[in-house]
Write a protein that binds this DNA or RNA. Structure first.
Lengths: 341, 341
DNA sequence: GGGGTCGGTGAGAGCGCTCTCGCCGCCGGG
DNA sequence: CCCGGCGGCGAGAGCGCTCTCACCGACCCC
């Protein structure tokens, strides 16, 4: 291990510039109240010595860390591996670094890992948290709220319904679903089915609601529950074709499900989009473009979601922010037409 | 902001247990050299007060942070969004948290962001770094080595050839490619093409080397350079079919490229695998399973790569580790047969 | 039974920073 | 010309922890 030749301290800079520690500190932190010739001397000393403030010492007295935790509670590796989180992370990272904050990533590993994460968050190592928790029965959000740490949730938390003051950012799942289904209606389709996601996730439930907003109490057999995976999409599509052979359009709850559905349709000799039109959700690029035909789908600006989450949190952390009660922020979606409709 | 009712300090625990700060510290940090009845009393006091050590204060004196940076230098959002990094992160996270280390995620945003990252790393905020940098001309690795921070690279760095002492973890790209091509040979194929990745990345270059290991100086027109994307795969496949219509097998440098190739093959009326067999690389699940037919591909255990990287770094950070010079670690790959061959 | 040894414990310094306070020199007003 | 005010700067305390060192009692050996 390379012995990092004793990092210079405030003291050293002060000595070199011929001023006191306090003055150097002032210059380093914005420099108000230090007259120009002196400030310049300090800045030069900082430069020459390559001084970098010791964050630990700083945190010790300020009680702020310039760090935010991002918690991803996703037991199934498979789901975590979709590009969704990567994009969110990128958005979050952009916003955080723009304001000189670090991103501490916390992934939960299985069921009883929640307490570890909760303890860490309660331990005062970070200033706030951005939490992704997809399932309704997840104990983590509750634990985190107990920790009393400023938090913004990614995706509408299932239990937030009545409560005010829960900050979250979500896509307009319901509105996007409505748009998708209306698009199919506009194409003259009448037997429009929906392959849902796991309904214990608010995103899946909201998309189903959007479908129902347009289709009303249409044939209930046209709704098949699935699980956001290609294999699940295949199963659901088979079940659907068996009970409703006359289906002429499918709105899948996400692109992965749609890809499974497409495969079954081809296998059963249905042409897409001539016989059956298919719409997905997410615009998960590697998938939506890799299917055959490429998928019409509802795009959500995932990176922007991340950015907004971070911005929301940083605003709450800033002591200058007036005490408000931010509700959820819901981002619009857009329909992307490709060859599957 | 909920005022976090004054976190208890070592002092408080000491007072409650009727011992000195030093003793509490000893118990909290493993408890060697404290007799049982006393230690128990301390533990109870810790429990009752809900004491959590202040990491900042600790770092200030120990000069260790219990934190490792993960640097992902990937300008193109698109590539970052593939599941590759997510899986690596999961592996890294598992290993780090198992040893009570935090993961600080650093994503570079564009070209001149390198200096920011380099400065952060040199700033002594973390104990070590895990760095992913795919491109040969990336200045980041150099800057990081200059910072003198213990580092492990993900993927063989291009410039490491001669140098010893550069720690990295990589998949056996070359061996995996050989296996893929041998598999095609074993199926009786003779006109085996290769759609490469961007050759300024070592992974792509190594896969090409593996192909050549088996095919030797075969028809050079069978090698088409591409870029790891579906669209690139389409372009390359079209070019290939135009110049070598007699091709009977394709080894694509990754699954995304393969998915593009498959689409073109179908469009041109070639049956897969009857007329042309196709093999990918990565076993990127959502893609490899979503294609039609599902893709035969070379799987790398990406999560394990992450885990090993973290383990390697932690070992270097541990002062008890004997001073050795770890070279690279290369992980085996396995061929996964699906319907495309 | 006295001196040496050794393991367990406490006292205290100090890590590098911020922030409060008090001093000092300069200004304006009486 | 003197005094009050004010802005710029330095001195010093203290954030919560670790770690060294000194101390003290118990134990062993001669």
């Amino acid at each position: 291990m390379t012995e990092t030749a004793q990092r210079p301290t405030l003291e050293a800079v002060a000595a070199r510039a011929g001023v006191s520690r306090a003055t150097v500190s002032r210059v380093v932190n914005g420099g108000d109240g230090v007259r120009e010739p002196l400030a310049e001397r300090v800045r030069r000393a900082v430069e020459e010595l390559g001084y970098v403030p010791n964050q630990a010492a700083r945190s010790l007295v300020t009680k702020r860390h310039g760090a935010v935790a991002v918690v991803i509670a996703e037991p199934e590796t498979r789901v975590f591996a979709d590009p969704f989180f990567a994009l969110q992370l990128r958005g979050i990272s952009k916003e955080l670094t723009a304001q000189d904050n670090q991103l501490v990533l916390l992934l939960t590993e299985g069921r009883d890992d929640h307490t570890r994460v909760a303890r860490y968050l309660a331990g005062g190592h970070v200033d706030g948290a951005l939490v992704f928790s997809l399932h309704l029965d997840d104990p983590l959000p509750g634990l985190i709220r107990g920790a009393g740490l400023p938090t913004v949730f990614g995706g509408r938390p299932g239990w937030s319904d009545g409560e005010a003051g829960v900050a979250y950012v979500d896509s307009d799942n319901r509105g996007g679903a409505r748009e998708a289904v209306r698009h199919l209606v506009g194409l003259g389709r009448t037997r429009i089915a929906h392959l849902t996601g796991p309904l214990d996730q608010t995103s899946a439930a909201d998309r189903l609601d959007g479908y129902r907003d347009v289709m009303g109490g249409a044939d209930a057999r046209l709704v098949v529950e699935s699980d956001f995976t290609p294999a699940g999409g295949e199963r659901a599509m088979r079940a659907l074709l068996d009970r409703c052979p006359d289906v002429d359009a499918v709105f899948a709850a996400n692109d992965l499900t749609a890809s499974g559905a497409l495969r079954v349709l081809r296998e059963r000799g249905r042409r897409v989009p001539e016989d059956v039109a298919v719409v997905g959700f997410d615009d998960m690029l590697p998938v939506a473009e890799a299917t055959d035909p490429p998928l019409t789908t509802v795009r959500q600006d995932i990176e922007e979601m991340g950015r907004i989450m971070a911005r929301l949190l940083l605003r709450r952390l800033d002591p200058r922010t007036p005490e408000e009660t931010p509700a959820g922020v819901v981002l619009p979606t857009t329909l992307v037409r490709r060859a599957s409709t």
